[in-house]
Design a protein around this nucleic acid. Structure first.
Lengths: 112, 112
DNA sequence: GGCCATTTCTACATGCTAGAAGAAATTGGG
DNA sequence: CCCAATTTCTTCTAGCATGTAGAAATGGCC
């Protein structure tokens, strides 16, 4: 029916993390960022799977860096948003905003 | 690993539509609301499947009404958020807000 | 009986998740 | 100096959850 180019929920969070982290957006770091900010206990496999999928869709690209001189400092692969990635994240944000505008959110205790 | 009780993207939109529509939240109406507000061409099957899943998770409940006296007016089943549903929608909102806070969103044309 | 608004069903595509395995680097004991 | 341990990070695999489309069924109105 439709085109169906919309972001999954976790894809949205990952894209926001990449945007926020700038040049420091590699797998482990993205995971930590999401965990710290949302309190969610994200598995690392989930993050990489999602980053790969985003790359397939052309919403991010990746660059392989040289290893840093720290213990266990393996080479990092960092990710950047593409133009399409920026569009996607903006669109997701606007769709949610449209659905929320003028809305009074109930305190959970009030509802049933 | 984690608990994994988070909302999918479409689940989020549907929940917001139900909240927004109040007593008028039945399948066809929810579909129209999302289409109107986001421009997305949602299939009706998608909406019902999602509403059913949300009901299974205890985030909404449904009530069957009497048919209205209009041509073709079959009985409507309308949905309401539960307390857990309100919690879920608030949590999803806050998680996104945390990931977005202080963030400058690029105009797509500016990026690459 | 045919029409219409709505819901239900079914089946497949895509996204999410977890954890174990693999790779590349530093460290420190012998 | 070398090797095994340790650390950080990435890749892989496989199963379950969500998203999507459309056709079929339902039931009141005319």
């Amino acid at each position: 029916m439709a085109k169906g180019n919309s972001l999954g929920e976790f894809e949205h969070l990952v894209l926001l993390a990449v945007l926020r982290l700038g040049t420091d957006a590699y797998g482990m770091r993205v995971r930590r960022e999401i965990a710290d900010r949302t309190g969610r206990d994200v598995s690392i496999g989930a993050v990489y799977a999602t980053l790969d999928r985003l790359a397939d869709k052309g919403l991010v690209t990746s660059t392989l860096h040289d290893p840093t001189p720290e213990r266990g400092g393996r080479a990092k692969r960092s990710f950047q948003l593409t133009g399409a990635g920026a569009e996607a994240v903006n669109r997701a944000r606007q769709d949610l905003a449209s659905m929320q505008e003028g809305q009074v959110f109930p305190h959970p205790r009030g509802a049933q």
